[in-house]
Nucleic acid binder design. Structure first.
Lengths: 219, 219
DNA sequence: CCATCTTTGCGTAAATTACTGAATTTCGGC
DNA sequence: GCCGAAATTCAGTAATTTACGCAAAGATGG
């Protein structure tokens, strides 16, 4: 089989060069280049025959998800492998939904990196061990289940609640949120209470921190 | 000259191996090992003749500062080089104050990494270019200056204000903070107002985010 | 000893919270 | 289509907290 042609996407020069130097020892893999952002990547993809994109995500956010979507749309045959420094459940699920074929946690070593590249090149998905657990846990917590856990914090916020939560975390007051959403201030308060009850929080500050932890807002 | 003996401290296997593989090409440097935390490091330092410690900081916090202090106390002759993914001013200054001899930003490349190791080995400090600017800016803003900028947001919080800010960010209410500090709730409110005026913030949420950005609290 | 900063405090108006309750809409499953 | 659960929308009222301007005693450093 021909060597697998990989391109690195990483904003950190040190990391880029480290990965490159690490992968260049492998007989099955050729690193075709290293780019720092989406536009550089798209240019390269037009001229290079790439099989696998290794995408580093340091501070997961909408930006990364959007990037995955665009790459998938333009080059559906290319496999995307995520190398993330954090293993936030919501982020993992979003990358997979957006089209990523594999997800490596920070605890992966050289062998796992190479194995994962080979695996997704062959058409299978690959998740780091710790990641698989998270995904499994998520499925167990899915809606279609017994009907006994009504009042537990299911943690599933509605779209509207998510919207309100984001606005709170962006420093808007109740009144400002009400104005923005064209509803009464009472409604906003209601949403806030429901959010805090669902996620089991006490204060607004905790709510903001929740939003930050889950990358609902930029900080 | 003998080769410089370096040890890597990095919690991320991939990064560790990448750095190692990158540095092992150099003729002047030998990577003596790679550890994941302080206790592993201290064990190694007892048996290996290390010149330089390369310490990766992904999410800067008190933890890193404390680590630097401990290493410096136990092994004052060893030079510590920080490789940080973020260039938060307060963090940079704290690492340097704690005893680090160099600070690399994420934009450093292989050459800069090697050069910085050689530089601090020779007894000089080394800062990435972008870092130097930050440090300079800070010095310009230092107390001992003209006396004209009295009312500007100097951004220098008093110890007490810092304390109050942290407690706010940890979700304590005014009353709880007052109880903790044995002062009236009015005093706490006053501190809060002064903090917000100094840093030029509008809301409590903004204050919390400020605390998070500057790593005043764990999140 | 003077200027400045810190720490402490108050009064009043405004905003938020804590409760409880409830009407309308939406939506998935049978 | 129908049913029930959840989502979305709003309200009343009392208690609490906050915003903001003002002020004064204590610490501190040149």
């Amino acid at each position: 089989m021909n060597k697998i042609e990989v391109i690195l996407v990483d904003d950190h020069r040190i990391m880029c060069e480290g990965l490159k130097s690490m992968l260049s020892d492998s007989h099955e893999i050729t690193v075709m280049g290293c780019v720092r952002n989406l536009s550089e990547l798209l240019i390269k993809l037009r001229i290079l025959p790439i099989h696998v994109i290794l995408l580093s995500c340091y501070e997961p956010g909408d930006h990364d998800i959007e990037m995955i979507r665009i790459i998938q749309r333009e080059h559906p045959q290319i496999k995307i492998l995520i190398l993330a420094m954090t293993a936030q459940e919501s982020f993992i699920l979003r990358t997979l939904k957006a089209g990523a074929k594999g997800f490596l946690s920070k605890d992966a070593d050289r062998n796992e990196l190479i194995e994962s590249i080979l695996t997704i090149r062959n058409g299978y998905d690959y998740y780091s061990k710790s990641i698989s657990e998270i995904i499994l846990k998520r499925y167990l917590n899915q809606p279609g289940n017994s009907s006994a856990q009504r009042n537990q914090p299911s943690g599933v916020l509605s779209d509207r609640e998510m919207e309100v939560l984001k606005l709170y975390a962006e420093s808007y007051t109740n009144q400002e949120i009400a104005d923005k959403l064209f509803v009464s201030i009472r409604t906003v308060e209601s949403h806030k209470n429901n959010i805090m009850r669902k996620i089991n929080l006490k204060t607004t500050v905790d709510m903001v921190k929740f939003a930050i932890r889950n990358n609902l807002i930029e900080i």
